[in-house]
Structures are given as structure tokens and as C-alpha cells.
Simulated assay, not measured.
Amino acid sequence: MSTSQKVAEDVAALTAEMGWRTSPNPPAAQVVAETLETMRALGMDYDWRSLVPYAELADRAARLDLDQLRDPGDPLQQAERAVLLTVLLEPALLALRRLAQEHHSALRFGNG
């Protein structure tokens, strides 16, 4: 079995573990597979099980995103709002993660 096949199976195992129903071969799954493949090529012992805690956080974030679309209204407006929330919030979520990493790094390792 090739490495590409193995990581594709890992991504399928991860989505199954999470109980996620997705379209066949979603682009995001390819990103996860490529990341796992690269990490393995660099000698990191990383598989789909390593991503479960991150997937759980992503699941919570996705629920929060969709909770903001509860208001009944025009489906087109809801779709536009969903896209805007995703596009605008994604950089902020990454920045929040970095801020949290800085905080926890200072707590664990001191301020230098």
C-alpha cells in the first residue's frame, strides 16, 4: 500500500471516528491527507488518532459557526452569511490559537 493510500485511509478513519458525513473526496480531506503525508515524510510519528483532539475542537467550532445561522430568513442570505463568517473568522481563529499558544508557552516555560 502506498503512503498516499494509507493517509487517505487515515482521513477516512478520522471522519468515521468523528461520525462526520461528508461528500466523497472533499478538498479539505485532501489537505489533511497531504499534511499527514508530509509529517510522516519528515519522520514524525503522526496518524489520524493524533488529530482526534483537533477534530473535536474543529467540530465545536463548526457547531458555533452554524449556531450563528439559526435565524430563519432568506436561504441565499444565510449562505452568504455562512461564507462571510468562514472567510472572516478563519484568520481570527488561527490568530487566537497563536495567542493561546504564546500564553501557555509562557506559563510552561517562563517569559524568557
Rank of each mutant, 00 (worst) to 15 (best):
V32W: 08
G43C: 08
D59N: 15
L89R: 10
A55T: 02
S105R: 11
L88T: 03
D67T: 06
N25L: 09
D65A: 05
L36T: 06
L36R: 10
S50N: 14
V32T: 15
A92Q: 15
H103P: 00
A82I: 01
H104G: 01
L36M: 09
R49A: 12
Q101L: 11
P26D: 02
E80C: 11
R108Y: 02
R60A: 15
A106N: 10
R98I: 03
F109N: 14
H103K: 11
D59W: 10
M44F: 13
Q30Y: 01
D10V: 05
P26W: 03
E90W: 09
R63L: 11
S50A: 15
A106P: 00
D45Q: 12
T35W: 10
L51S: 05
Q77A: 14
E102Q: 12
Q78S: 08
P24T: 07
V11D: 05
Q30K: 09
A12F: 00
Q68E: 13
L93D: 05
E34A: 14
V7K: 04
L85Y: 00
V52T: 09
D71Y: 03
K6M: 08
Y46L: 13
L14D: 02
M44N: 10
Q101E: 14
M1V: 12
T3K: 03
M1Y: 03
R108V: 01
P72L: 05
H103R: 14
L14Y: 01
D47Q: 12
A92T: 14
P75F: 00
L96W: 07
L42I: 02
S50G: 13
D74C: 08
E9G: 15
S23Y: 04
D10T: 06
A16K: 15
E56S: 07
E56H: 12
A92E: 15
T3F: 00
L64H: 09
L66Q: 06
P53H: 06
S2Q: 03
D74G: 04
P24S: 08
Y54P: 00
M44S: 08
E80G: 11
L84S: 04
L89S: 11
A92L: 15
L57R: 11
A28M: 12
W20D: 08
V83L: 10
W20N: 03
S105A: 11
H103S: 07
P27A: 02
A28S: 13
G112D: 14
W48F: 13
R49Y: 01
P24A: 12
S105Y: 08
L42H: 14
D67P: 00
A61S: 09
L107V: 10
P91M: 04
F109D: 14
R108W: 01
K6L: 11
L85H: 00
T15W: 15
P91E: 02
L93Q: 11
L93F: 11
L57P: 00
N111Q: 15
D65F: 04
A12Y: 00
M18W: 01
W20Y: 08
L66N: 06
V52H: 04
W20F: 12
L88I: 02
Y54T: 06
L94Q: 08
L89K: 09
G19E: 03
E80A: 14
V52K: 05
G110S: 15
E17V: 06
G43L: 07
L93E: 07
L94R: 11
M1P: 08
D47P: 07
T15M: 13
A55L: 02
